[in-house]
């Protein structure tokens, strides 16, 4: 079907431009790939601030610290392409508001979640219509939040949670190195960020919650060490651009004060993890524990941001950003 509303491209089709690789040699690949500078259990810093969108009843903005390689690339640029990206997203909460007239009676709050990548958010341009992965993320987020909201306190009303991802986490390093893994690992970091930001925005809207819910990511990573041997290791808050091979990853939505998990997403083969000699945990248990630890870290930032929102609400202090 032809599209009459827009100016269309030429009907005959065009050839995509093919660019020469900016990575000419193996040494470029070796030096160009960002390296993880953090400890395996060290998280990236998080910036989280609530109440930035005045027209919404609650809102939050979340940003991860860019990896060290980005700062290095800025000071001595080798390429125009930034080596890695860091998550930036904005979350708005609208409601509680009346349900649409067509909806049936609901004694509970009806939650709807939308996650949308901005077209420029990822290295691969996203369309304006939500695609399958965005809908999938929305469903994951809804599951995570449904367990934490006290829905029966808001009869006959709906809550819309909309997240715009301004900069997405990379799924892999951009360079077409032959050993790059190719699976959407970045989505898991995006989901963890979405959960944390949505929790802050819901608290900002003063919807009753059981707890603040934080998202965390852990992964089993098989990077080559000096002797060329891949040892699968557990790492928290992995940036997929920094790793050659992520074997499996896990994201959880975790309520620290109740020690409960409302959402788990575990992907990949977790059986190969080499844990400590006296560590009897299986790989996926270790992954889950790691993700929970990462969520605890995110929770400390979240609690600070929500406390700030409450202070601003009570007129006690002017607002400021919370960082870990």
């Amino acid at each position: 079907m032809t599209d009459r509303r827009r100016i269309n491209g030429p009907p005959s089709g065009t050839r995509p431009a093919v660019f020469a690789s900016s990575l000419n040699s193996a040494s470029d690949i070796a030096t160009g790939r960002p390296q993880r500078q953090r400890q395996p259990n060290e998280l990236r810093k998080i910036f989280l601030k609530t109440g930035l969108i005045p027209s919404a009843s609650g809102s939050a903005y979340l940003e991860y610290e860019p990896s060290a390689s980005l700062a290095a690339a800025r000071s001595s640029p080798k390429s125009l392409i930034p080596p890695s990206s860091a998550l930036k997203l904005a979350c708005t909460v609208h409601g509680p508001k009346p349900l649409p007239r067509s909806a049936t009676f609901s004694p509970n709050l009806v939650l709807t979640t939308h996650i949308k990548y901005a077209p420029f958010a990822a290295r691969k341009r996203k369309g304006h219509i939500r695609d399958a992965s965005e809908r999938d993320l929305g469903v994951h987020l809804e599951t995570a939040l449904r367990g934490v909201i006290v829905a029966e306190r808001w009869p006959k009303s709906g809550l819309d949670i909309t997240i715009t991802i301004l900069e997405a986490e990379d799924d892999r390093w951009w360079g077409d190195a032959p050993d790059s893994h190719d699976a959407p690992w970045g989505m898991m970091n995006v989901l963890a960020g979405c959960i944390t930001a949505a929790s802050a925005a819901i608290s900002d809207a003063r919807i009753d919650c059981l707890d603040l819910i934080a998202g965390g990511v852990a992964a089993i990573v098989a990077d080559e060490s000096e002797d060329g041997e891949a040892k699968p290791k557990l790492m928290l808050d992995t940036d997929p651009a920094e790793h050659k091979a992520i074997l499996s990853a896990c994201v959880v939505a975790y309520m620290p004060s109740r020690d409960e998990i409302t959402e788990i997403w575990l992907k990949g083969d977790s059986s190969k993890a080499l844990l400590g000699p006296d560590d009897k945990r299986s790989g996926h248990e270790a992954l889950l524990d790691g993700a929970v630890d990462a969520a605890r870290g995110a929770h400390s930032v979240l609690a600070e941001a929500v406390r700030e929102s409450a202070e601003r609400f009570a007129g006690l202090a002017p607002g400021g950003g919370a960082t870990q």
Binding site: S203, D208, C209, D211, S257, R258, A303, R307, E311, L316
Partner: peptide, 8 residues
């Protein structure tokens, strides 16, 4: 004086 969700 000020509580956040999940605080005892």
């Amino acid at each position: 004086a000020l509580a956040i969700p999940g605080q005892r």
